[in-house]
């Protein structure tokens, strides 16, 4: 039982982060707070991939002549790291797109509250 908890607590922490992000998206009325929740959700996915790519007894995926490369148990799996590396930068760029959309919404309606914007549209 304790081994099970020790092996799974990292996943549950990322699930807590997912729930915080979803809470921000669903409950908050301000659009900037919704965007912050979206970013927390994205970072939780990145942390989940990094957690699932770990391997006990392995070292970082940089080739060392002293450690034989033929046995794959000596090195971490480089594939999740690569995917998340690109995902972080793409996340920052799309966050820029989200904030520029918010700036243009604010310039038009002079508010960022969701319900006030809906009232102004109708």
């Amino acid at each position: 039982m304790l081994d099970f908890l020790y092996g799974h607590y990292a996943y549950w922490l990322t699930i807590v982060l997912v729930c915080i992000g979803l809470y921000g998206i669903i409950f908050k009325k301000n659009l900037v707070k919704k965007t912050i929740g979206l970013t927390i959700l994205q970072i939780s996915v990145v942390l989940f991939w990094v957690a699932i790519g770990s391997k006990w007894g392995a070292t970082v995926p940089v080739y060392d002549p002293d450690i034989p490369v033929a046995d794959a148990a000596n090195y971490l799996n480089p594939l999740p790291h690569t995917l998340m590396l690109t995902a972080i930068v793409v996340g920052v760029a799309t966050l820029g797109v989200a904030f520029s959309l918010l700036i243009s919404v604010y310039n038009r309606y002079k508010t960022l509250d969701e319900e006030e914007i809906l009232n102004e549209i109708q």
Partner: peptide, 12 residues
């Protein structure tokens, strides 16, 4: 090529 790093991190 020899340590953690690369284009994305250096560009940031």
């Amino acid at each position: 090529h020899y340590s953690p790093g690369g284009g994305f991190q250096g560009g940031a």
